[in-house]
């Protein structure tokens, strides 16, 4: 277990500062108008704002359009398999708590094939940011219903409309034991997106952020109203949550919501007439898996001593 095995990296004179260019990877290959572009921009802005060393930052993703994001950020990236980003991120963080870990998942990744990991990662409450880029559809595999597709919305697999009510990821996360940070934002409001990412990054624990996100190809109509009519948006504001004063002029509806109020958060998370954005719940006092027990690393000599002692107990 190497808390900070980077002691040697910071040689003399390492007082680097990082600019946007330090985080920019190759040009993204998402469709024009895809919400992933805005998320990428906000993420890169966050890295600059927080001055995260690129070599000590890891983006972990699963499979799907959004899971390509790590390729476009110049940090370390782990583009793994469908639905399993969270276990990988858990392993990274367990072995290397010194790394900043971001998990990028789509709605299929997080709420369908990897749903079990999502619940348990919430409960582990390890210090990482988990982004659910929710476009309400399977995009990469070309238009299949996802758990978050609204009821009645057609796709290639349910052509006359999705059969069931959509899964509400906020409710599910808020219902899970030991949840410590649950927020929702929208990629078409960059200031809110950035502020939410920053709050998530600064929160110590598992920061779950659902980002509402257009798929221009398959679910554009679902987000049109939210994008065009500020009236359907309702901001949750609080000093302990996200407050973007500049948005007050555009978005008239806001609720003062204390993120420590879990019952309130659960009520607000229910589907309603308006799209609610902001921090629903935040409690830093929840147990964090990686903090519960930590021994310092032992040197080889110490380990051998311990092993010899242990062998002695089995000696014949």
């Amino acid at each position: 277990m190497n808390e900070l095995c980077s002691l040697a990296v910071y040689g003399a004179g390492d007082d680097r500062s990082f600019a946007l260019g330090d985080y920019e990877g190759p040009l993204p290959r998402w469709c024009p108008g895809c919400g992933d572009h805005s998320v990428l921009a906000a993420v890169q802005r966050l890295l600059v704002a927080e001055q995260l060393a690129p070599e000590r930052t890891v983006f972990v993703s699963g499979i799907g359009c959004s899971s390509r994001l790590p390729h476009y950020v110049r940090t370390y990236g782990f583009h793994g398999i469908h639905g399993r980003a969270l276990p990988v991120a858990t392993g990274i963080k367990l072995h290397r708590p010194d790394l900043s870990v971001f998990v990028v998942m789509g709605d299929g990744d997080c709420t369908s094939i990897g749903a079990g990991h999502w619940l348990h990662a919430t409960r582990y409450n390890m210090d990482m940011v988990a982004l659910l880029l929710d476009n309400n559809i399977y995009g990469l595999t070309k238009n299949q219903t996802s758990p978050t597709t609204p009821q009645g919305y057609p796709s290639n697999t349910q052509p006359r409309g999705s059969y069931l009510p959509a899964l509400n990821p906020l409710e599910a996360t808020l219902g899970m034991t030991n949840a410590s940070f649950v927020a929702q934002t929208a990629e078409w409001i960059p200031a809110h997106l950035f502020a939410t990412l920053q709050a998530a990054h600064r929160h110590r624990g598992f920061s779950f952020v659902r980002v509402l996100q257009r798929c221009p190809k398959y679910t554009a109509p679902l987000f049109e109203e939210g994008m065009r009519k500020p009236d359907v948006i309702e901001l949750l504001v609080h000093d302990d949550g996200v407050t973007v004063p500049a948005l007050a002029g555009v978005y008239k509806h806001s609720i003062h919501h204390d993120p420590l109020d879990l019952d309130g958060a659960r009520r607000l998370a229910e589907e309603g007439d308006r799209i609610r954005l902001g921090v629903f719940f935040r409690d830093e006092s929840r147990s964090r898996y990686e903090d519960i027990r930590r021994l310092r690393s032992f040197t080889a000599e110490e380990k051998i001593d311990l092993l010899e002692g242990e062998l002695e107990r089995h000696a014949v």
């Binding site: 277990m1 190497n2 808390e3 900070l4 095995c5 980077s6 002691l7 310092r296 690393s297 040197t299």
Partner: peptide
């Protein structure tokens, strides 16, 4: 103890690497 442990872990790991 905990933050001291973190510091010592980093040192111990470097001892290993140099070894």
């Amino acid at each position: 103890e905990q933050p001291r442990t973190l510091f010592l872990s980093a040192v111990a790991d470097l001892v290993g690497e140099l070894g």
